[in-house]
Design a protein around this nucleic acid. Structure first.
Ligand SMILES: [Mn+2]
Ligand SMILES: [Mn+2]
Ligand SMILES: [Zn+2]
Ligand SMILES: [Zn+2]
Lengths: 161, 161
DNA sequence: CCTTTCTTGAAAATCACTATAATTTATTAT
DNA sequence: ATAATAAATTATAGTGATTTTCAAGAAAGG
């Protein structure tokens, strides 16, 4: 954690930005919620807990800055807000997402999976790929499990009628 | 075109919605600009040309309705607006996009490409895929060409100095 | 017709996000 | 140190896209 912050600090310095207390508090929140996909508002509320005097505009600016530095990726799942996803250190590609249309959960796929596809696109469409966004919408493993169980229920109910 | 509208009309009726003149004008604009990725505002301005009395709210409502009926897909390329993409009839998957970070163009890939990847995801993550969104960000073939040419220019300039 | 339901258009409201301006904090020059 | 300079922050006002509200206008059924 501290090391991670140190490296981000160095990244900021390399572009002559400072790691202010507000920026550090924001980065800590992101690190502590690495698995989540927080909106700016979410981050703001969490940062306020440890730095109550911070302003919403600062959170927006910090997230934008971290996005430029490629510390976070800005993503959009189609609900009205942008979400910020900490980029895994050393990851050479942006990970993928599984959005559940039943429960709204968002799971991650760290495996690349797109290597072959990207080769085809670069070759056949003469497109130089710099980044990608891949999201699957469907039913997550938890909801599939639940379905099995409540599926039995439904059948019992159906049998009654 | 007319047949396509007829089928959409039937789809609306099957859910007891009507194909009002405003809705028809909106659908026509979408059909006439099938290759583009229009925002609600874009659609509004185009519809106004053939039905000047239409209101912006109606366009939004119609696009939302068409999205529910799966006639259009609502997509978001990260600029602040939602865009509406006519779903190809009979397409069993949503097509992919190539967004150029140089010129902003958006090209389409109709080929599936994800068959194998989806099999892996369904099997290894126990996720039942219903839909997907795949977008590549990079440099389009036009900009790559232009680069080659202006690249020569740049070199000439550099040689001058 | 009369009533009910669906749609619409204009305007107001909402919501996420951005820009502004005054103030504070950090850096550099004297 | 001290003063000038630059960077960053805060609160607030402003934007722009989208949604909601509400009064008025068609369409459908009896
Ligand atoms: Mn993620
Ligand atoms: Mn498209
Ligand atoms: Zn689920
Ligand atoms: Zn281009």
């Amino acid at each position: 954690m501290e090391q991670r912050i140190d490296r981000i600090k160095k990244q900021l310095h390399s572009q002559s930005y400072k790691l202010t207390p507000q920026r550090e508090a924001t980065v800590r929140v992101l690190l502590e919620n690495e698995k989540d996909h927080l909106s700016a508002e979410d981050v703001y509320l969490l940062v306020k807990e440890k730095a109550p005097e911070i302003g919403l505009a600062t959170v927006y600016r910090t997230l934008e800055l971290l996005n430029e530095l490629e510390v976070v990726d800005k993503i959009n799942f189609g609900d009205g807000v942008s979400r910020y996803d900490l980029r895994k250190e050393g990851a050479d590609h942006f990970h993928h997402h599984l959005v559940c249309i039943e429960c709204g959960s968002v799971d991650e796929i760290q495996e690349d999976l797109l290597g072959d596809v990207e080769k085809v696109v670069e070759a056949n469409w003469n497109f130089r790929i710099k980044d990608h966004r891949l999201t699957f919408h469907g039913v997550c493993h938890r909801c599939i499990e639940q379905e099995k169980n409540s599926g039995e229920h439904v059948n019992k109910e159906a049998n009654k009628a």
